[in-house]
Design a protein around this nucleic acid. Structure first.
Lengths: 147, 147
DNA sequence: GATGGGGCTTCCAGTTACTGGAAGGTCAAG
DNA sequence: CTTGACCTTCCAGTAACTGGAAGCCCCATC
């Protein structure tokens, strides 16, 4: 089948499929007489694997390793699990970080009247040093402050 | 003061400061005789504002608007709040999406023995069609399936 | 005076994972 | 023969910087 069908059947766009081929995630597809790429059911299966892994947020480089383990019938599941755990750690960290932002922001929004008046706790917070405190390292100006 | 000091005092890297200047988030800093950029306390204050907004995850384009509102002493807080709410929506959506990934992945990891054996629920899941179901739109192959 | 070490400048490349679009070839149907 | 849906390659752009190279400035020290 051609790339468009492989795309429809896998849920991966044709653009992405070509991209995956270019970065070596997929072996170059054989071409038929007119130069069109030709795909098999196996290729579609592989594309679905990639699609699902992307849905779980795995980065391409990790998917590369996952694919390699998938193809290796004698892989130890330990390796797969390790990759998954690493990614889970990343996801958890991201959730934490994003939640922290959301919590802070929500508090500010609740304190803001949000009407025609210019007073705004959100801007007040942004223009405050609080978030930056401790960031100022001593600094070694050998020359006095200019301007 | 020079860019390095402004960087230390604001917590924004010198590279980033130049970058902000280039994309027009900051007005071009005046240069002194030797061509070095020169910054004032006010500039540092502005940099801290940006830093804090970035910490809350605001994208640069939104920060551009926030800065403009900040400078406008007669802005209605409504506008600031609207920007913040928009961003909060984005953050919440991201948390949801990431948590969904984490939940699925955690379940798979727990089901995986993670030892020397090749059997692995994680790979099983990835190579399953479940995630892709419904993605196959009818498809209009005017030509029969090739290969 | 030469050297060393920061700090500064600009410019180019790379990161992540694609998507959009242009210019042009292929093929079956009307 | 034209139309239209495909396909091809190649270039650019996205977000927000960071890293690094090549080279200038300037102060302190040997």
């Amino acid at each position: 089948m051609r790339i468009g069908d492989a795309a429809r059947q896998s849920g991966v766009s044709a653009k992405a499929i070509r991209h995956y081929e270019m970065i070596g995630l997929l072996r170059p597809a054989p071409r038929n007489s007119n130069g069109y790429r030709s795909y098999s059911e196996i290729d579609v299966h592989e594309l679905r694997f990639i699609k699902r892994a992307r849905t779980l947020g795995f980065p391409i480089e990790t998917i590369r390793e996952l694919l390699s383990l998938w193809r290796d019938r004698s892989r130890p599941s330990r390796k797969v699990r390790a990759l998954a755990e690493g990614h889970l750690g990343f996801l958890d960290a991201r959730i934490q970080a994003t939640e922290q932002m959301a919590v802070s922001l929500r508090r500010l929004i609740e304190a803001c009247s949000g009407d025609h008046r210019p007073d705004c706790p959100i801007l007040d917070d942004l223009s405050t040093d609080q978030g930056t405190t401790g960031t100022n390292r001593p600094g070694k100006n050998r020359r006095g402050p200019t301007r």
